[in-house]
């Protein structure tokens, strides 16, 4: 990065360190923080949407829909995350390629499945073999978001389902007495009131999601934990910047990052909780009302 960094072996002390911390590899490390944050920002709302859908299905008066909603939560919650991440992603990737294969290569005669091998025609590869690495990374990232959203959506569905059940029946009955139909009761009374019950569960999920990002590496996306391990490992003279085992320092930096994320989330979640409790028929809402008078 700096012109003085051309010959690292001649550098000393701070100069060495400043050059070391700005190598291409370290820049990749810094970018991976952004990858993780992007994943969180994209996954959280998607998972919430999956959860909302799942909870609505689980409450549906129609049996098939109810089975679908409950089946989704039960299945995902029952399977260990790591199995899900290994199995589901490969299945998703292969089914996408299989679909493209059907469209693009109808004349292909070789078997697609050959023992353990999965082989579609070259035109059906997603992304194409010839496309730049960045597309492969983006594709991997999108698969990661879908998988994370599906897993955390199932947990969120259960939380939201419980929250919907927790809204006092009297509130809904009152709304019905005013002549609102099912949809109106749901939109105007049930949904606005359920969040305060859902928040503790959802904030738990958010915290777990923050810490689950190292699973990204299973999906081929290089996250901060991968880089910390790779950069911190002992380096022989074959590298431009040899150093002993520094994983401790790298993982300490990650510790600070994760603690900062946790603290920040806690502050935000407390504010949201206060806001949602306002005017609610809960102990917290009651306390707010008393404090105001």
């Amino acid at each position: 990065m700096f012109s003085s960094c051309v010959d690292p072996s001649s550098l000393q002390g701070l100069n060495w360190l400043s050059c070391y911390l700005t190598t291409g590899k370290h820049i990749d490390f810094y970018w991976s923080f952004l990858t993780v944050l992007t994943l969180l920002v994209v996954t959280a709302p998607t998972a919430l949407a999956f959860g909302f859908g799942g909870a609505m299905l689980a409450r549906s008066p129609h049996l098939p829909l109810r089975i679908l909603g409950k089946g989704y939560t039960a299945m995902v919650r029952g399977i260990p995350d790591i199995v899900f991440f290994l199995f589901f992603v490969i299945a998703l990737d292969q089914s996408i390629e299989w679909l493209v294969h059907q469209v693009r290569c109808p004349d292909w005669t070789d078997p697609i499945r050959n023992g353990l091998e999965f082989r579609v025609c070259p035109q059906a590869k997603v992304p194409q073999n010839s496309s730049p690495q960045v597309w492969h990374s983006i594709y991997g990232f999108v698969l990661a978001v879908i998988t994370f959203a599906l897993v955390f959506g199932a947990f969120a569905a259960n939380v939201l389902y419980g929250a919907m059940q927790a809204v006092p029946r009297a509130q809904l009955e009152t709304a019905e007495a005013y002549g609102m139909n099912h949809g109106q009761v749901f939109r105007r009374v049930l949904v606005p009131q359920m969040w305060v019950y859902a928040l503790p569960g959802l904030s738990n999920l958010w915290m777990i999601l923050i810490k689950a990002t190292p699973l990204l590496f299973l999906l081929g996306v290089q996250d901060i934990v991968y880089w910390a391990r790779e950069l911190g490992g002992a380096k022989t003279a074959v590298y431009a910047f040899p150093h002993p085992d520094w994983r401790l320092y790298y993982f300490l930096a990650l510790l600070v990052f994760y603690l900062a994320m946790t603290k920040f989330s806690e502050v935000v979640l407390t504010r949201v909780q206060n806001r949602l409790s306002h005017g609610q028929a809960t102990a917290a809402g009651e306390a707010q009302r008393k404090a105001a008078t």
Partner: peptide, 9 residues
């Protein structure tokens, strides 16, 4: 999917 895989070299 086609858009994603376009440009088969």
């Amino acid at each position: 999917l086609l858009a994603l895989t376009a440009g088969a070299a």
